[in-house]
Design a binder for these strands. Sequence first.
DNA 1: CGATGGTTTGAGATATATCAAACCTCGTGG
DNA 2: CCACGAGGTTTGATATATCTCAAACCATCG
Lengths: 232, 232
Amino acid sequence: MSSCDLCVVRNRAICSSLDSKELEALNSIGRRRTLSAGDSLMWEGEDSVLVANVIEGVLKLSAGTEDGREQIVGVVYPSEFIGRPFGTTNGHGVTALTDARICVFNRRDFDAFAREHPKLEHKLLERTLGELDRTRRWMLLLGRKSASEKVASFLLEMAERLVEPGCHISLTPSVRTLTLPFSRQQIADVLGLTIETVSRQFTRLKDEGVIALPSRREVSILDPEGLAAEAG
Amino acid sequence: MSSCDLCVVRNRAICSSLDSKELEALNSIGRRRTLSAGDSLMWEGEDSVLVANVIEGVLKLSAGTEDGREQIVGVVYPSEFIGRPFGTTNGHGVTALTDARICVFNRRDFDAFAREHPKLEHKLLERTLGELDRTRRWMLLLGRKSASEKVASFLLEMAERLVEPGCHISLTPSVRTLTLPFSRQQIADVLGLTIETVSRQFTRLKDEGVIALPSRREVSILDPEGLAAEAG
DNA sequence: CGATGGTTTGAGATATATCAAACCTCGTGG
DNA sequence: CCACGAGGTTTGATATATCTCAAACCATCG
């Protein structure tokens, strides 16, 4: 029995395109790995040596300027795919935001396997197309939205995305409390703002009664409609 | 003889993955179409009914807010692919910036064809992965760069991208003159700035002797190093 | 030549960044 | 168990880049 049979993302990751025999073959070229919050898996501009599936945890994709400014260009959740197949260099760094478990492959091995398994490539294509759409919509936020719209949009996105196994969320009728996998600085790096501006927007939303802040990493959405109205 | 044999992007578009017999089959489900500058091919949020290859011309992908703010989220050049295969809705609008010629397919027909031709899907996957990398790097510009860095980066990107058949460019040793397919407003929409800020940055670069502006749509890059230095 | 649409320039307003200090929270060691 | 220290966060005061509003300018086309 391959370890994939126990995998919690088995039916949601790109692996779901494979039958059990194929899955075993893929499993034989991959290996499990754990990451602690803060660990980097790859760096921007580095050779593309590995790719991976996320089993548990949340990771960030980031790009930076010479002088140290950073922008988080993507967030990866369980069952999603990491890395650059069929390419020589990584376009961005990959770092774990929470402790994480992933399933890693040597990139060349994965490329060869994928080329022989069109259904896997098809699944990967569908995901990549979806991710591209999502990324482009985020550009609207970065280029055109105000700080308050950015923060409200961010919280709504989190509320939507964190409802996944492997992420922590509890919801009672119309009150959702989320445990953010981001520090304030990281939220700023997602939204293209400074940490101070993010903080001020959080306290403003709290003062308006739209959200509550039980702890540093937790946010309760008290008024989803109000938040949506602020998101622009 | 299929009309593809004469196609100028035949060897660069995703079609290059097909042999002549397959190409003929693909050709039979597609048709040529011309667009005038300003024509829209699809709208944001609309059902995904068609996909296309660009033969000649430049098109923009754009997203907008309720209240009319717009962000250009992608620019498409000859040989590149447009539309959302394997999906139900278009994530963004597509509008011709210049007169253009494209090769259009009914999306469902294309989907079916692609599923039966793994090499085509592979090519499309490679392109989509590349486009996703490019798009993510652009997020760094939107989120973290100043107006002057944005404009300089934009001009360098144009200098790189417009060296394609179907686009107009002339270059003498170290002086490139480009004919931009964008109005000032459109440049602003690419960069997440206002038209006035873009205009001021252009005149500043001109005053510094980094560029010259022979006409509204033309830019000569006099000092590529200087421009690169401004791009951050 | 005069209208039209896009562009540039100017003056002023403002959202966000910057700089700086106070404030928590949590883990550590005395 | 409490004091302490460190890192992250919030709050405050000020600076500034960019936006906004407005007018002048300039090509293009009937």
